[in-house]
């Protein structure tokens, strides 16, 4: 390979999954720079191992998935977080995505789907499972009742695309149906995440100001 291999860090507290995922990644030509089962350790080493992609299981014994996601961003902003998780953790997944994760794939996904998701994450694309589309759509619906200025809204088109992703359609199928380019569909999806990320950051700042956390000690 001419270009350097994508650097991946695997964070999963279950050794069986950690080993299996690491092996799949290595065999597919990725460079697994670290594999750990502890959120705290992941946060400690992320800056020194400089991963392009962090494959993260949300259910860690020591630190919550949201805090790990946020901490990874703070520790090494270039790392992109792909959540590899079991089904039925809706709230956790949504919170992690709002905290900056750019992808979500189920543990039940096949090896090929998983490797493809890692590749797309490293390329900077959002990886949306139908489940994540449903969660993001739901979050915007919830925010729709919030009259505060600056609350992110979905465009008609974005809502339409999210609904299609949520019913299992591939980007190609969506592009064909809406007569758009594959890239445009990808951009629509990406935009919805960007809006959530920005809003989440604004929210945090507003929270900090309201609670006087910006004024420092004294």
């Amino acid at each position: 390979m001419s270009e350097p291999a994508t650097r991946v860090m695997v964070v999963d507290d279950h050794p069986m999954w950690r080993d299996s995922v690491s092996r799949d990644l290595s065999e597919a030509g990725f460079k697994v720079v670290a594999a750990t089962g502890e959120g705290a350790q992941a946060l400690r080493i992320v800056a020194s191992v400089r991963p392009d992609v962090v494959v993260l299981d949300l259910q860690l014994p020591d630190v919550s998935g949201v805090d790990v996601t946020r901490g990874l961003h703070a520790g090494y902003p270039a790392a992109r977080v792909l959540i590899l998780s079991a089904s039925g953790e809706h709230r956790d997944v949504l919170d992690a995505v709002k905290a900056g994760a750019t992808g979500y794939i189920l543990k039940s996904a096949s090896r090929a789907e998983f490797l493809d998701a890692v590749r797309r994450t490293s390329a900077g694309d959002a990886v949306f499972s139908p489940g994540l589309a449903g969660l993001v759509l739901g979050e915007f619906r919830r925010l729709a009742s919030d009259p505060a200025p600056g609350t992110p809204r979905l465009t008609e088109r974005e809502a339409e695309v999210l609904r299609m992703v949520g019913t299992g359609m591939s980007y190609k199928q969506i592009a064909d149906r809406l007569v758009l380019s594959h890239r445009t569909v990808q951009n629509h999806v990406q935009n919805t995440l960007t809006k959530l990320h920005l809003h989440n950051r604004v929210d945090l700042v507003r929270y900090a100001i309201e609670h006087g956390l910006d004024s420092g000690p004294g």
């Binding site: 139908p130 589309a133 449903g134 759509l137 739901g138 619906r141 919830r142 729709a144 009742s145 609904r163 949520g166 019913t167 299992g168 359609m169």
Partner: peptide, 19 residues
Amino acid sequence: ARAWVLVDDEGAAVSVTIR
């Protein structure tokens, strides 16, 4: 056959899509 059921809470109405 694969099928997807999407629940979309639009506020005034709830839509469910089966594809």
